[in-house]
Nucleic acid binder design. Structure first.
Lengths: 329, 329
DNA sequence: AAGAAGTCGGTAATCGTTTGCCGAGAGGAC
DNA sequence: GTCCTCTCGGCAAACGATTACCGACTTCTT
């Protein structure tokens, strides 16, 4: 495993008997070069196993053909689905997408932003960790490069935003349940996340809007463990029937698992709905009724925003309802 | 959103009335500097909102304090769990961990490796897409920087390896089932993945070793959809009881969902086990019996390997059995 | 035939940072 | 007082690529 000094353009130029300018032009196709000479250069580059140093290129050019994505947590399947779709959206372009996980920490998120900025990325995609406390990181990003917030946003920043209409998503759930079920014998409980992120915030507001201000709310985080605990609390408060509207599919899956384990029936005794629809809803039986976010279209929108020259903008996508086995109908 | 030219060290030096050498030494702490002067420099840097250009630094220094991770697919929860644990393991160090998703494509994987090499990363962590066809990418990586393969490996390369003992993992399942169940009335079927990756390969070999060469095998990919399909095939072949040993928790979850949907009981009629144990096993009811990989320890080992100076090495971690509700006992 | 226009290779400056080396000054030993 | 040893700031040369500019040459125009 001995590693020799990598070949540089100067080495290639020497071997091919030309100047580095010519090598650069051949390899990056910047300007026409005599075919015979070009052939000498490519063969020399191949012989020396030359690979370009992107640091040198990036330093000289102003751009790096790189976009950074900072996300809060890879274990949340919705975020990893977004990451995957975004990666695919960029795989067809000249631009490299690099990911950085903030590990749900504001400090690590800030570090990720600074790291990408230091690397002179052309644009930054951010899923902010916190609705207020990520403001500094988002502002720093937006003041330096084209920045797009994804899924979650920090109000009052200059950065663009791409996300789903949470109000419409909850409305889909509401209409579905009102059409198919009796919400008196199955009283509604919202199992959400504390409104630290704009999506948690907006989903909570939307639930209150469509189901009434007095709707019962249990707030935790976006995890299956919280779904289980919320279901446990509900049962220990005496409920034997009900409707659980969950802020994410992982929460819903946890809740369903606990309800079934406690001997209750889904959807007969308890109806449960999720949110996101990126695949986790199909892991369970019954499969989850959920609100599907059009992640592929969202990823494409991000890709387009990132390469475009326009001003900051915001775009809300329309979710759709996927009816599974955890709700009647 | 007007963006001005970022401040450089020369700007800071001018404002502080010192040379760029002094600025560099103050900001990177390379050498002692007179406290009064240091104070002038830091205040000037703050005033100008100076942020270091890592391209310049990386070009001059030989190292970049960066490690790249190329993984096949973020939607596989095991890979995103590995990514997350690795990110956490590096969050405490000076080194930045950057991720790149190969989108299950050999070409994209190669692109990721080349991209990271061009960025002069200090080390590369690879989860190879394919046991044979990723050989070129792994060899390229290993010939340029310290390289560690994770979870999957390409035989015959110079790169280190960190993974779990698949043979021992399947042995745990075997011993558990033999102790707790009647494998005659519940014949064994292995629901695995085509042996394109070393982990799929090794798990298949291990199943044949512990359960016999003639064990029934259904091979697909690491997805819930495949788990469902495999269960459907098994049922349509007439099976009404059985034991399904699955190569991953997502496969197992899909299989269980289909079996339950078809009206069968788990674990009474069908016993099902998974592999990985990174959280997906708790989304279902019954919760999955699975083989847990010690991902946190594995991530720590990767971190240590990456900073160490030693030769290439291989390390197999020992998995543990997590007994859930899909198997007797 | 002379000038204009186009093609294409090379020279050297440049991107932003780090660091080897020099030298000035301080402090200590004798 | 001399010499030796430290400390610490600055000069300038890298690191590896790109590209503005120059100039030699070819081709076209009139």
């Amino acid at each position: 495993m001995s590693r020799t000094r990598p070949a540089t353009m100067a080495d290639v130029a020497r071997l091919a008997g030309v100047s580095t300018a010519t090598v650069s032009r051949v390899l990056s196709g910047t300007r026409a070069v005599d075919p015979a000479m070009a052939e000498r250069v490519t063969s020399a580059a191949g012989r020396l196993d030359y690979r370009i140093n992107l640091l040198g290129r990036g330093l000289r050019r102003t751009s790096t053909a790189t976009v950074g994505l900072v996300l809060p947590d890879l274990r949340n399947p919705f975020f990893s689905a977004l990451g995957q779709h975004l990666a695919r959206a960029f795989a067809g372009s000249e631009v490299d997408l690099l990911l950085f996980s903030a590990d749900d920490s504001l400090a690590t998120e800030a570090r990720g932003v600074r790291s990408f900025l230091g690397r002179q990325v052309d644009a930054l995609v951010l899923i902010p960790v916190h609705e207020e406390r990520s403001a500094e990181a988002v502002a720093l990003a937006a003041s330096s490069v084209r920045t797009v917030q994804l899924d979650r946003r920090v109000p009052g920043t200059q950065a663009s935003y791409v996300g789903v209409s949470n109000r419409d998503g909850i409305a889909l759930v509401h209409d579905h349940l009102v059409a198919a079920a009796d919400l008196v014998s199955h009283p509604v409980t919202y199992v959400g996340a504390t409104p630290d992120s704009s999506s948690a915030h907006e989903r909570l507001d939307a639930v209150r809007r469509w189901f009434g201000q007095e709707v019962d709310c249990l707030l935790g985080d976006f995890s299956a463990a919280w779904g289980r605990e919320a279901a446990a609390r509900l049962l220990s408060s005496g409920a034997r029937t009900g409707t659980l509207i969950c802020a994410a599919d992982v929460i819903a899956a946890g809740a369903v698992a606990h309800l079934l384990a406690a001997g209750h029936r889904v959807p007969e005794d308890f109806r449960v709905t999720g949110f996101d629809g990126v695949g986790a809803e199909e892991l369970t039986h019954p499969s989850l009724t959920t609100v599907r976010q059009p992640v592929e279209a969202m990823a494409a929108a991000i890709r387009d925003l990132v390469v475009s020259e326009g001003d900051a903008s915001a775009r809300w996508f329309e979710p759709t309802l996927v009816v599974g086995g955890t709700s009647p109908g």
